[in-house]
Simulated assay, not measured.
Amino acid sequence: MGQTGCLLLHGFTGGAYEVNPLARYLREHTDWIISVPVLPGHGRHLRLHETNAVEWITYAEEELKRLYMYCDEIYVVGFSMGGLIAAYLTIHYPVKKLVLLSAAALYINPKQILSDVKTVFADTLRRKLNENEWFGHYKYKLFHTPIRSTREFRRLATYVVPLLPKIRVPVFIAQGQMDGIVPPKAARFVYDRVGTYQKRLYLSKSSKHLICYGSDCDQLFHEIAFFLKQEKVPDNG
């Protein structure tokens, strides 16, 4: 049997750190070649004003083609916006299986954001704002994300979402029910639209948007690895 590869794609304004916990798990439990590229303009220091959606997709395509130089089978994992790019790659290349984590087919969950904002406000009153995980994660992004880049992200979503019925390979869809960026209903939205009967839906009751850092991430990673290794995926809709 030939070599297997797995490409993991991070989200909008994010970086490899968003999917690194899963990448580490897969490296420890498989002999696959694991690739975790950082899309142009992304990473620890954002330079989004220098890039656009076409460049993000093109870069991911180049990384996928590089994997094909060494691998016979390739799985693609996409987090948030990376899920949209992963879906695009699956439609246009012979990807074996697809994993979508908090896929940004829909975005902004007002109810959860309101809850998070209340937490930030309460921490402000207690003068613990710098200790608030949510505030620390998004503060930098709020000030370093150009409006034009947000339009590029929406342009990508507008293009890819109608293509979901073209996905014919097995798909694993995971979503945190406490997600304040992508509404929990996005998981079912994607599940209902992908054009395959071999699909699995995993909902985490405790996870927010960064699902690879959720309290149940070990269980999630186990389920993903099992999904990728099994021969046939049952529909659990």
Score class of each variant (00 low, 15 high):
111 K>W: 03
34 I>K: 15
16 A>Q: 12
40 P>S: 00
197 Y>V: 14
179 D>K: 06
99 V>L: 02
219 Q>P: 03
180 G>E: 08
69 M>W: 09
165 P>L: 09
63 E>A: 06
165 P>E: 05
47 R>V: 14
64 L>R: 11
113 I>N: 06
229 K>N: 09
138 Y>I: 09
69 M>S: 12
195 G>F: 03
159 Y>K: 01
53 A>V: 05
14 G>P: 12
196 T>E: 02
170 P>I: 09
213 Y>Q: 13
38 V>I: 14
159 Y>A: 13
151 R>W: 07
133 E>T: 08
49 H>V: 10
169 V>A: 07
54 V>Y: 01
215 S>T: 11
226 F>R: 13
191 Y>G: 12
150 T>C: 10
17 Y>L: 10
30 T>D: 00
206 S>I: 12
205 K>Q: 14
217 C>S: 14
16 A>E: 15
58 T>C: 07
150 T>V: 15
37 P>L: 14
113 I>F: 15
23 A>I: 08
54 V>W: 11
191 Y>D: 13
154 R>M: 13
128 K>I: 02
122 A>Y: 04
110 P>H: 05
233 V>H: 04
125 L>Y: 02
156 L>D: 12
71 C>G: 03
67 L>K: 08
205 K>M: 02
162 P>C: 05
224 I>Q: 10
208 K>W: 06
111 K>T: 01
15 G>I: 01
181 I>L: 05
95 V>S: 07
225 A>C: 02
8 L>S: 05
207 S>H: 00
43 G>S: 05
132 N>E: 13
49 H>W: 10
73 E>L: 09
82 G>A: 11
147 I>M: 07
112 Q>E: 11
223 E>A: 09
185 K>W: 03
40 P>N: 00
95 V>G: 08
232 K>R: 12
152 E>G: 04
113 I>L: 15
87 A>I: 00
35 S>V: 06
7 L>C: 03
20 N>E: 15
233 V>E: 02
43 G>L: 04
182 V>C: 14
7 L>S: 07
234 P>M: 04
202 Y>C: 08
25 Y>A: 11
174 A>L: 01
154 R>P: 01
169 V>I: 15
108 I>A: 03
20 N>A: 04
166 K>S: 11
191 Y>T: 05
